[in-house]
Design a protein around this nucleic acid. Sequence first.
DNA 1: GATCACTGCTACGTACTACGTAGTATCGTA
DNA 2: TACGATACTACGTAGTACGTAGCAGTGATC
Lengths: 106, 106
Amino acid sequence: MPRQRDRVGWAEPALLILASLADGPKHGYAITKDVEEQTSIKLGPGTLYAAIARLEESGLIAPLDEDERRRPYRITAEGQTVLDDKLRAMARFARTGLTRLGVANA
Amino acid sequence: MPRQRDRVGWAEPALLILASLADGPKHGYAITKDVEEQTSIKLGPGTLYAAIARLEESGLIAPLDEDERRRPYRITAEGQTVLDDKLRAMARFARTGLTRLGVANA
DNA sequence: GATCACTGCTACGTACTACGTAGTATCGTA
DNA sequence: TACGATACTACGTAGTACGTAGCAGTGATC
């Protein structure tokens, strides 16, 4: 799916959300803001809440007590494991790619 | 899109292809093999050639002389720029995420 | 005290695209 | 000559990213 400006996306919403929750529990809107700060990627509400629902269904995140205006979520142990795996793979991939590009600091 | 085993994908085919071509020109099948070696991600032909077509259309990769059995491609200067940006963003994101997870080597 | 901006989420439609499977053809090799 | 690897085309399905619109509560400002 055409991501942001060019067609080459590097992270899917689910991963962005997981990484955001790795910092501590947050509700949807706070996740959007955090992701935007960290990555400059703006998740629209449609994208965000759909992805959250799928993550919850997969058991990678879990809902907390909801103050009827906010729906906070936390990352589960399984979510942490998955996230850890993915981030390591990403880091490895990025390092290799930068090396291939001939970038010094890789 | 459900990626591989779990639902949390970390790299889109377009990026995998770009990174593979950063190493030098390759034809489709060789890209599949390279990506699989580097990332354990298997790109089916449908996914692969569709993504290649889009990358070519975007000017991020360009075709080379085709030996009628193989269609080799190279990464363009614009492709290198885009790839460099994405990989740096990925590396930053992965580092931040691992830190948040409390991982030592981040 | 009406308007405006921000917070926070729901609902919905569209189009993209990841993925799998089947099929075609060439080549090497045992 | 039959099998496996190489190399790509064609096609259908369903998942999902993304945008827009809408609704509601909370301030701040004038």
